[in-house]
Every structure is written in structure tokens, then in C-alpha cells.
Amino acid sequence: MIPTPYAVSIRRFLALLSFPETITMILLIAAFAVSASLSPYFLDIRYLLDSTSLYMEVGLMALAMTLVIISGNIDLSIASNLALTAVICAKLYSSLGVPMAVALILAPVIGSALGLANGLVVTMLRLPSLAVTLGTLALYRGLAQVLVGDHSIGHFPDWFTGIDYRYLGPMPMPLLIFLGAAVLFALLLHKTVFGRCVFAVGTNELAAKFSGIRTGRVKLAIFTLSGAMAGCGAMMMLSRLSVARYDLALGDELAVITTVVLGGTDIFGGRGTILGTALALLLLDIIRRGMGVANVSAEDQLAVTGALLVAAVLLARLSAGIGRRVSLISHR
């Protein structure tokens, strides 16, 4: 290849494309453009900010799920974890008279315990995380169902509910919480020893172990963190909806995994960024809002979300293929 300036910039562009986050960014801009053309609301920043609140629980769980998938595992039980934690805390408050503030603090703890259970089965019994979390997906939601049947628990204190109506300036609280968590997770994943260990385990668990990394502990921590986020999400959802039911976040594990994969995290592990996950969350939110504004029903949106997950994986493959070809060209 003759190194003309033209050729060089083409190569640079292709190299940039080999980053999945770039593709996410491009999709994000495209989705924004389409949605804006469908409805003028989209250009209203207030509207955009408000609409994020519906999705922030998924966002929180997606942050932790990013780490889980990077480490080469998967956690299908997070949404069920959320439901069970919410139900337990609601019950503690309504039936056992535990002060809501205490329940609020307990939620991440309970979620962590449920996540830790996953981690223990995976590390001690050496079972694949897929099988284990498929089981706990059913078990946790089932337990939620046992605890609360098909009733709802409501009547939470005023200070607790309506988190999506509280603002700090123009930013709704859920968005702020998510952004704060995203920053923390980004630092954790990309700047700490622990984050490095997560990448190592997902890249080559044996080599990581042979280098003295405690892979078992890393995995335990990841699953516990995932559970903790589910617990936080539980409280957020409870505050937003003011009811606790067994079917909270039903099916949200799909949205979470879609977010993570769409954000460029490799489903096979070893690669991913928090930035990508955040961008993907925004992308999914815009797609949903866009569909809503275009009068696409909630159910149709479901179809699109499902298709999106598959499309995300295929896209990832595509960008990996581009990446490989780019490196072949540049390292002749």
C-alpha cells in the first residue's frame, strides 16, 4: 500500500472502526438523528434527561454485568435478584416494621449475598456460570413469588418514593446515581489492580492463575458486585414505582446483557469498557424513546430489543473481523 495521506487516513479510520465503541457511537448518533426527525421532543434536553429515569436500574446492573462478561462469565439471575431483594426489603418494612432507611441500606447487602451465592457455587463446585445463574434466575424469582404471591406491597414513606422526581439542577437523581456509579466502575475496571485481574481472568484464566492471581476470589467478588448492583437497582425501582411485586424487572436480564454486548464488550470475555456500556445504554434509551414517540407499542419494542441483542453480537464479530484485517495490513 502506497502511503499517501489519503491511504493513511483510510487506514486510521478503519483502525478506529476496529474499536466496537466507535460503532456504538456511530449508531448512537444515527439513532439520535432518526429520532429527532421523528419528533421535535427529542431536541428538548429536559425531555431527554427525564426519560432516562426509566432505564437507570438496567444501567446499574449493566455496569456490574460488564465486569462479569469481561471475566468470561455471565449472570442471568440479576433481574430475579433485584426482584427478590426488593420484595424482601418491602416485606421487612411493611410486615416487620423495619425502618425504611435500614431497609434501604440492607438492600445492597441482601443483593450481594444472593450474588455471592452464585459466586460460591461457580468457584467451589466449578460449575459453569451459565447453568448456575439459569437456576438462580428461576430460584430467586420463585422465592420472590413465594414471599409475596401476586400481591403488591406499597405505601412506602414519602421521602423514599419518587426518586425520579428529584433533581439536582436539571439532572434527575437516578441519572446522577448512575453516572456516579459509572465513574466508580470505570475507575475500578480500568484503573485498579482488581480491574486488571478481571481482564486477566477473562483473557486466559489459567495463565492468570499461574501468575499468582487469585482467580477464585476475583470471580467471587464479581458475582457479589453484580448482586450488590441488583440490590441498588431494587431500591431505585422501588422508589420509582412505589410497589414491590414479584415480577419487578421481569425479563430485564435481556436488556442488561444487550446493553453490555452492544457497548462492545466481547461475549467471550477479555475485552470491554464502561464507556461502551454507558454509550449503549444511552443508545438503547434513545431507540426506546424513539420508538415510543413514533407510536411503536411497548410490545413491539420488545421485539426490537430481542433482535438488537443478536444484532449486537453479529456487529461485534464484524468489528473484530475489521480489526483483524487492519492489523494484517499495518503489520506487513
Binding site: 420488545l302 430481542g306 438488537l308 443478536v310
Partner: peptide, 12 residues
């Protein structure tokens, strides 16, 4: 992943 996606897509 594939069947998780189609699970939802088909339900939609």
C-alpha cells in the same frame, strides 16, 4: 445469547 434474543424478539 441467540436464544435469549429470539426469546424476546418472538415475544414482541
Amino acid at each position: 445469547i441467540a436464544t435469549l434474543g429470539t426469546l424476546t424478539a418472538y415475544r414482541g
